[in-house]
Design a binder for these strands. Structure first.
Lengths: 346, 346
DNA sequence: TGCTTTTCCTAAATCGATTTAGTAGACTTG
DNA sequence: CAAGTCTACTAAATCGATTTAGGAAAAGCA
């Protein structure tokens, strides 16, 4: 691979200084009173040599890389994939690129990713934190490193974040379930369960139950480990559906869990919603075609990504965010299909 | 944000040279006969100051960034999201990070992404090329820039690639359809249609038709534009299903198209497979739960990602790939469910 | 003519690492 | 004891840009 031309090459070829070339190519030619004629020669030579600035050098000198880091649990999960796309689009509109990593909800992996991305001089970080490593987040904050949490936040800590209104969405779910005749509503949550995206869904579920005059029963809420979804669901779902628990509805808190739940119910030879109602927090295109179509909460994923980038770039570029709302909850929407017995089709 | 400590800071604090510190921290202390005692002091001080090397500086000096670029059509598409994850895992195992971009099958965007990623000094590129910009690919090749194509390749050009056996998979599809009684098989393809991932599926379809003694009918093959899937499908599917075309089966070449097709058939009030059989090239988890479960070709996505990274890293690190197979076709698998009338359940 | 402005441009420092070439001093050795 | 050999280290160049501080020549002005 031939070496790429540098500023110095252009300068030498033209018999001028690197300074001049740099100024011209950065559009500061006029500000610095460089002769129009000379400017043209520089541009021409740059084109001729197909000059492309070395971003490493530029970043080193300028102390910024125009790159942001994005850490999510798993990029292959549709929810994060869509989020990723939204972040990419918003970032690229502003001239930023994105370096990403999947943490698998593993605190150690997340810690390493944060470290590696910082080492690579990303200008800021958007993290869907697994949060066991609270101190790392705090350290970033303390160092005044541009950071925005997405999907989940750290309670009682002043870190900017953008999430769905998980609480409100959950209330929507329970209200709907009750309106369809549900009496015993089980909830399938996921560990790590300390994530606010989960705790708020649990809290919403609990409050909405009370609001609807249904007693909260700890036994009907079960937590499935993130890395053992299939096994976990295979054990828990039959247990909840059969006596003595006999739930008539299942509020499933995320899409991975929902897929496994559908599978399990199918294996049990039961039918939805006759034997058990199902709602999923987070909507997926294909839910429309499942038998029966799955009622779900649609999250404003694109908006989340955009907003997170907006806040982050503001922090990066102004090094402060005094007059900016940086704790954002976005509304969700209940998409009623038929898995709760409704006649609505969508 | 406080400035991060540099090599020079450690050196100064210890009263030694930067050279020494650099050597020690890179594990070359013993090779260069640095006193054990001194080495310990360096490590201690590095830990004390929480020193992290500046990758920009290192990359600038070393001429490599330990970053690879990944360009796909759309990271939010499950197929690419899964591919992305595979690439990430394989890369990170080797100490590389991934910068990515979505091209939306748009040649100009792809061109820009290639440019930007190269500017950022990625060490190599994995591209799911849209290929209208053949010359850019060729330019990379000519410059001996480490490059591996994924999912699709450029025919008659010596660029390394890793793809599914699209031809073989398509034969599997048609054979299965015929075995289920299909007589008139339509194919829904997508533009840009010059992508080998598509042309080979078309070729496989055609050849398999001949093999099964069915006449090829140009009219039964329709191309839907990438950016107008819903509208395109909405028009084409009814047209193909109704007379005079009256297809009894639809071979849909990708997952986005399949989702739209399912929707359209549902809207028409028809049932699968009674009114029309459907097979999709590329399998998705949820196809299991669709009504009826969708028969599909499963692609070895993880293996594709891994293999592509393996070839790329070999090129990057050895600057040659003389004795390496760098044109790889990976086997696909037909997952028989019920959308073609089979009784098999999976 | 002599002094001030403009106009147009440059040398050198800098960012933070790696690497090449070399050196001071202690220790061997014939 | 002079020469060679180790041991343990360092100065300075380098990667490729940006930026600071400044300078020579031409033009303007009195």
């Amino acid at each position: 691979m031939d070496k790429k031309p540098s500023l110095a090459d252009i300068a030498k070829a033209l018999g001028v200084s690197k300074t001049l070339v740099s100024m011209v190519l950065n559009g500061k030619g006029n500000d610095n009173g460089i002769n129009e004629e000379t400017q043209k020669r520089v541009w021409a030579k740059a084109k001729e040599l197909d000059y492309k600035p070395n971003m490493m050098a530029r970043s080193l000198r300028m102390g910024r890389s125009n790159t942001i880091g994005l850490i999510v649990a798993d990029i292959s999960n549709s929810f994060y994939a869509r989020m990723c796309r939204a972040v990419e689009d918003a970032a690229s509109k502003a001239g930023y690129h994105v370096l990403f990593g999947s943490s698998d909800e593993n605190a150690v992996k997340e810690k390493n990713l944060i470290q590696m991305l910082r080492d690579r001089q990303v200008d800021g970080l958007i993290i869907s934190t697994t949060l066991s490593n609270n101190d790392d987040i705090q350290a970033l904050q303390a160092a005044n490193f541009p950071l925005v949490l997405i999907d989940r936040y750290v309670p009682n800590q002043d870190t900017p974040f953008v999430t769905s209104d998980n609480y409100g969405g959950s209330v929507l779910v329970v209200d709907h379930l009750v309106s369809q005749g549900a009496k015993r509503i089980g909830q399938l949550t996921i560990s790590p369960s300390h994530l606010t995206s989960i705790t708020e869904r649990t809290r919403g579920y609990k409050d909405a139950l009370a609001k609807n005059g249904i007693a909260y029963d700890q036994d009907l809420v079960r937590e499935i480990p993130y890395d053992k979804i299939r096994e976990g669901i295979g054990k828990i779902v039959p247990m909840l559906i059969n006596p003595p628990y006999s739930v008539d509805s299942l509020f499933v808190v995320n899409n991975n869990l929902a897929v496994a739940t559908l599978e399990c119910i199918k294996d049990m030879g039961l039918s939805i919603p006759d034997n058990v109602r199902v709602v999923c927090f987070d909507d997926i295109d294909l839910f429309k075609f499942v038998n029966p179509p799955v009622t779900a909460i649609a999250q404003p994923i694109a908006a989340m990504g955009e907003k997170a980038v907006e806040i982050l770039l503001h922090k990066i570029e102004h090094r402060d965010n005094a007059n900016m709302t940086d704790k954002v909850f976005l509304e969700t929407e209940l998409i009623v299909r038929q898995s709760c017995g409704s006649k609505a089709v969508r």
